[in-house]
Computed example of a mutant assay.
Amino acid sequence: MTYDLPAHQRALAFDRAAGAYAAHRPQYPAAVFETVEEFSGQRLAGARVADVGTGTGIAARDLHERGARVVGVEPGAGMAAQFRRELPGVPLVRGDGNRLPLADGSLDLVSYAQSWHWTDPSRAVPSALRVLRPGGALALWWSDPDPAVPWVAEQGARIEEWLGPGCYISNVQTPAGLLWKTRTLRWSRRVTVDFHLAKLATHSAFIVLGEPRASAFLTAERKRLAQHFPGGELDEPYVTSVAVAVRPA
């Protein structure tokens, strides 16, 4: 099964779908950034921030618009190229979350938005703490489809039947050894059925599956969703988890 590829290979598969990722993946709600400020004890405006595994810059854009002095860190060539198209005024360095190419103690905040599950925490935590100043913060956040919504749970079961267990949720664990503050946020966005399916196609499990098999699933899914949503639109519900730990002074 293609989903059994190592995590780093699946992460780099996003390069094949960078444009679609930028177009269809959701922004994060404002409450995410308000939570990061609350839990870290610092304002984002003026903060020196590295957004790691930044991809096409979805979180980096929000951080930048809130006044952070943000730099993106991205391993994939395709995603990095899309980032530069999306955010030409925001610095970007090539690198991964396990070995940050940044100076010791140079940052107020290190964020991993939808990217922590691609790291090796035994390497990523020391790397993040190294580049943070004393009192700086490590922030993780990730969004998953809300399983409390019946049609989402049914769709998730079909995806796991097709691709294997654990292929559609982030499965993030906050690493031991740090004092974490956590919060769960529920929200949704209104999209068309076709837009929702295009978003599904940007998940790594579908990318590595290959176009013919992915298209077969998505075509069948379009027919099912048309029965649920005859008007052609739906509320796409999410659960976003936020975890923040402050580096001891």
Rank of each mutant, 00 (worst) to 15 (best):
residue 45 A to E: 10
residue 8 H to I: 08
residue 31 A to S: 11
residue 47 A to H: 10
residue 230 P to Q: 00
residue 130 R to W: 07
residue 176 A to K: 15
residue 234 L to Q: 04
residue 17 A to F: 13
residue 126 P to M: 08
residue 82 Q to C: 07
residue 156 G to E: 04
residue 50 A to I: 02
residue 182 T to V: 11
residue 244 V to T: 07
residue 63 L to I: 08
residue 20 A to K: 14
residue 105 G to K: 05
residue 197 L to N: 04
residue 184 T to F: 08
residue 212 P to G: 13
residue 121 P to E: 02
residue 182 T to W: 00
residue 193 V to I: 06
residue 110 V to A: 13
residue 116 W to V: 09
residue 63 L to P: 11
residue 166 G to D: 02
residue 115 S to A: 15
residue 237 P to H: 12
residue 118 W to T: 09
residue 107 L to A: 09
residue 25 R to A: 07
residue 181 K to M: 02
residue 78 G to W: 08
residue 195 F to P: 01
residue 8 H to R: 15
residue 226 A to G: 10
residue 7 A to D: 11
residue 78 G to P: 08
residue 150 P to T: 00
residue 115 S to G: 12
residue 121 P to S: 14
residue 115 S to E: 02
residue 183 R to Y: 08
residue 209 L to I: 01
residue 83 F to P: 06
residue 81 A to N: 04
residue 16 R to G: 11
residue 86 E to N: 13
residue 28 Y to E: 00
residue 102 L to W: 01
residue 68 A to R: 14
residue 196 H to F: 15
residue 136 G to P: 06
residue 169 I to P: 05
residue 105 G to C: 06
residue 42 Q to A: 14
residue 60 A to Y: 07
residue 32 V to E: 06
residue 111 S to D: 04
residue 66 R to L: 04
residue 239 V to D: 00
residue 170 S to W: 06
residue 231 G to I: 00
residue 44 L to R: 15
residue 230 P to W: 00
residue 238 Y to S: 10
residue 178 L to E: 03
residue 126 P to S: 09
residue 164 G to K: 11
residue 74 E to T: 10
residue 107 L to W: 06
residue 180 W to E: 05
residue 35 T to E: 07
residue 236 E to K: 14
residue 215 S to A: 15
residue 146 D to N: 15
residue 178 L to C: 05
residue 184 T to P: 03
residue 146 D to S: 12
residue 162 W to G: 06
residue 213 R to P: 09
residue 78 G to R: 13
residue 247 R to L: 09
residue 14 F to Q: 11
residue 141 W to N: 10
residue 56 T to H: 09
residue 212 P to K: 12
residue 202 T to E: 10
residue 92 L to G: 04
residue 163 L to H: 01
residue 69 R to L: 15
residue 43 R to K: 15
residue 155 Q to C: 07
residue 224 R to M: 02
residue 222 R to Q: 06
residue 225 L to T: 03
residue 80 A to L: 00
residue 33 F to Q: 07
residue 120 D to R: 15
residue 243 A to F: 04
residue 133 R to S: 07
residue 157 A to C: 01
residue 76 G to Q: 07
residue 88 P to V: 06
residue 28 Y to A: 03
residue 225 L to Q: 06
residue 211 E to Y: 08
residue 85 R to L: 04
residue 193 V to T: 08
residue 100 L to H: 11
residue 110 V to E: 00
residue 52 V to H: 12
residue 48 R to F: 03
residue 105 G to V: 00
residue 202 T to K: 13
residue 118 W to L: 08
residue 24 H to T: 09
residue 65 E to A: 14
residue 172 V to K: 12
residue 234 L to Y: 04
residue 229 F to P: 01
residue 32 V to R: 14
residue 144 D to R: 14
residue 172 V to C: 12
residue 228 H to Y: 03
residue 181 K to G: 06
residue 247 R to V: 01
residue 70 V to I: 03
residue 56 T to C: 03
residue 228 H to W: 03
residue 121 P to A: 14
residue 136 G to V: 05
residue 123 R to S: 11
residue 172 V to G: 13
residue 19 G to I: 03
residue 125 V to D: 11
residue 218 L to V: 09
residue 198 A to W: 13
residue 171 N to V: 02
